[in-house]
Design a protein around this nucleic acid. Structure first.
Lengths: 204, 204
DNA sequence: TTTCGATGTTGACAATGGAAAGATTTCTGG
DNA sequence: CCAGAAATCTTTCCATTGTCAACATCGAAA
């Protein structure tokens, strides 16, 4: 997996994307604390200074990775919604489960996206991706309550409550703070967090 | 502030505690990403290798600081409860506000306590401090519902929901994800998050 | 008083991110 | 088709960091 067959061409071909993939591997294996740019370069099979031609510095690479993360977070929410059966509230709860599932499946990436100041969260590729994911939540609140977060301040409490709940669940699960029963079956897990997410939803 | 008058004695006197204080300064100013052990030593006015006699490595210093953080988090919750007027539910909500306040006042420390794998969270001084803070929450749930988290699994959902909510609020606020109105008065802020925290509480 | 452990200092090392300069390939305008 | 320019990659270099080892200093107990 880590072996790099020496490439035939002097130029890599698609180093930029390769580096992002390498960064995700590096992040998942070593965590954000021990993340190393040189490690990414090694994984991609290039010299340690090569990334500089594609990313201003290590943080710029992490920014690009974080943006990809937000895209995938959004997809995780929307696909969970699509699979859900039932009414609007069930879709809403399902999107929250998708949020938590993403976090649990990609703890280090999630940490990069929400808990780190290394990525530049103002840079459009990243802020846009984040905004799109946020849009799934506000869309659900709009569908359920008829209140538009963009124009109606009264929607704020619903949006914040729902987001805080799924986000808090994610962080606590990732941080291993909730000592759930060892071999808790997936079904029971989904049932538990669904009930909790439902609590945060708009009042009927 | 950063000036170090050369101390008169070869030995420092209380370097261990001074280093923890220095670490908190370093953390608050530079953030966990740029935290440097040598920077702490400089703040404390000792050579770069001096900390080794008090802490095995940089992570051990961060562990001690995190433990202090959990103590202060617990105090922030209990004092907020003590000041609160009203019934059990109001006390519960107040403790949540204390949790969020602590996070907002100490963002980098909070990040160290919950979002980092650098401290050794299994080490008793740290795990005990965390457990004590957790006990404030479970105590409130017990008072409100009569169910004991330690013995009654049915208390689990209440505890997790409440914790996830205040924790998610804290993380989102710290991460500047919630774009609350610029000069939002303290009163309105407390009112907003109190309403949200109340949502997560046990069903009446 | 002497000795020894605790505490502090200096010097060294490897790893890291980043800058500078050279090498190789590809692109572009004639 | 070809020379020069631009892009991409490598090598070399430097400052910073965490950690280790060796040495210096102090204080307390024998």
């Amino acid at each position: 997996m880590n072996e790099q067959s020496p490439r035939k061409t002097y130029h890599h071909g698609d180093l930029r994307q390769t580096l992002i993939a390498a960064a995700e591997e590096e992040l998942a294996e070593k965590g954000l604390e021990a993340f190393s740019l040189r490690g990414c370069a090694k994984r991609a099979g290039v010299s340690h200074a090569a990334p500089a031609h594609h990313f201003k510095d290590a943080d710029a690479l992490l920014s690009a990775l974080a943006a990809e993360g937000f895209d995938r977070l959004r997809v995780s929410m929307t696909t969970a919604m699509a699979r859900a059966e039932g009414g609007l509230e069930d879709k809403f709860v399902a999107s929250g489960v998708g949020y938590v599932d993403f976090a649990c499946a990609n703890p280090a990436l999630f940490h990069l996206m929400f808990g780190s100041r290394r990525p530049d969260h103002e840079h459009p590729p990243l802020s846009d991706a984040g905004g799109s994911a946020f849009g799934v939540l506000t869309g659900n609140i709009l569908a359920m309550t008829g209140r538009d977060y963009a124009t109606d301040p009264a929607a704020g409490e619903d949006v914040i409550a729902a987001w805080a709940m799924v986000h808090g669940l994610s962080e606590l699960l990732i941080g291993d703070k909730l000592h759930l029963p060892e071999g808790m079956p997936r079904e029971a897990f989904v049932s538990l967090i669904s009930a909790i997410i439902r609590r945060s939803g708009p009042r009927a």
